[in-house]
Nucleic acid binder design. Structure first.
Lengths: 235, 235
DNA sequence: TCAAAAGTGTTGTTGGTACACCCATGG
DNA sequence: CCATGGGTGTACCAACAACACTTTTGA
């Protein structure tokens, strides 16, 4: 942050976009993400995270938001900075690129706006390599890091709520946790833990039209962040 | 990460360096950090985080390491990326600067190499504003963020160990936690929690020359990261 | 009246807190 | 033999896992 120097360093902003959709085979809800096919060298034809160069008049988040809308059609509310990757050799091209990576969590209702295309495809996060092959640049490493962080963060911060619309029954929230953590949770104990935390509040309304007892609807409580959730398995 | 563009964006790497030293008044161990006095506009004369422009042939961490050695004389082992700050208006100068911030934790034995100077001074982290006034750029915000993250992270990851040399008695580790969290902890329960976690292992050796029962020496266990520590107060 | 999911009750166990107490050393 | 911090024992209590059980709807 001192003297200027004539850099040949390019700055890019890319985003790992997570949405929850049913798995094509099992039908279980899992994490999906969109990838963009490279249409030039290096890594021509391979899949990469959506992103683009940082424009001089754009904030970092704005840049992420703009490319996201552009490439995926999405405008997710939850957008959070993850990490900056800047090793000298991370791109084989002559120019050096430092990438600032964001992650986005797409709400079920926001996901409706998602588009596909020849050069934009969605993949289940956990079988990227089988489906998409090796990602361009170090994007495989970045994705692994993002998944790791998401799974860790979900246990101490209410980010899971970011996948849900305004109002939701607790079972929906449980399904989000199950999808992220990839394991079943005990419904009754889950309910008690979530309510004890105070990260959701009862709206007083109920969902109707279900083939069973109508569940209460909750909204997420903007206060109360950070806690510990001792999430437990069910056999 | 796609098309090049002729940016006017500068990239800088700065570091929040934390070391533990006794407080000038209370004598209690607290967090200190070094600041550099600005010797040019903008913010001439004000204090700023040590840092410098990213050189094209340098990795991000290398850059942090190099400026650190240069300005503070320190070569801390623990260096970790914190966040990238890049708002358009964060510098009043004509050039736009994106700063990637690292934090460093300085071990007690490493701290011996620290230097001071007319333009480099160390301050207790918690009374920066009284001692150093308003920091240059958004460095005040950055510092607050770093302190926050450090205090949160210490409860779920063994970073506190980074302040200690190879071998240490548990009371030393407790003092580190107390200094970071700014409150007293119960010695016996602290011991049990730490041992239960398995983040330290007994070296079999003991410290000698104390005016009391010689404490066992421990070393930190490189496996076992992430856990939850329910740190409790003592009245 | 049955299936299915919502939601409650209850019990055994684990792990944290508080605090009394013993241990080992240097002076 | 005393002061000082190292280290152990233990009793109380809160929180969690497991799972049986009741409730409320649509078909």
């Amino acid at each position: 942050m001192t003297a200027p120097s004539n850099l040949q360093i390019e700055l890019a902003v890319s985003t790992v976009v997570f949405a929850l959709r049913p798995h094509p085979e099992s039908g279980e809800l899992t994490l999906w993400l969109p990838l963009v096919r490279r249409i030039r060298e290096p890594f021509l034809g391979q899949w990469a995270l959506p992103g683009g160069p940082l424009e001089p008049e754009q904030d970092l988040v704005s840049s992420a938001r703009a490319t996201l809308l552009d490439t995926t059609g999405l405008a997710p509310r939850h957008l959070e900075q993850l990490y900056a990757f800047g090793d000298v050799d991370r791109s084989p091209a002559s120019t050096r690129v430092v990438s600032i990576i964001y992650w986005a969590l797409v709400r079920a209702d926001e996901d409706a706006a998602a588009v596909e295309g020849e050069n934009l495809e969605w993949f289940p996060a956990d079988d990227i390599t089988e489906e998409a092959g090796v990602l361009a640049f170090d994007h495989g490493v970045i994705l692994a890091y993002a998944l790791d962080r998401l799974r860790a963060k979900v246990t101490y911060s209410p980010i899971a709520h970011a996948f849900l619309p305004e109002q939701f029954p607790l079972a929906e929230l449980r399904r989000v946790y199950e999808a992220i953590l990839n394991r079943a949770l005990d419904p009754s104990n889950f309910r008690r833990q979530i309510l004890a935390q105070g990260t959701v509040e009862d709206t007083g309304e109920r969902m109707t039209g279900t083939a069973h007892r109508p569940p209460r609807l909750y909204r997420s409580n903007p206060h109360r962040t950070r806690y510990t959730l001792t999430i437990q398995e069910t056999p």
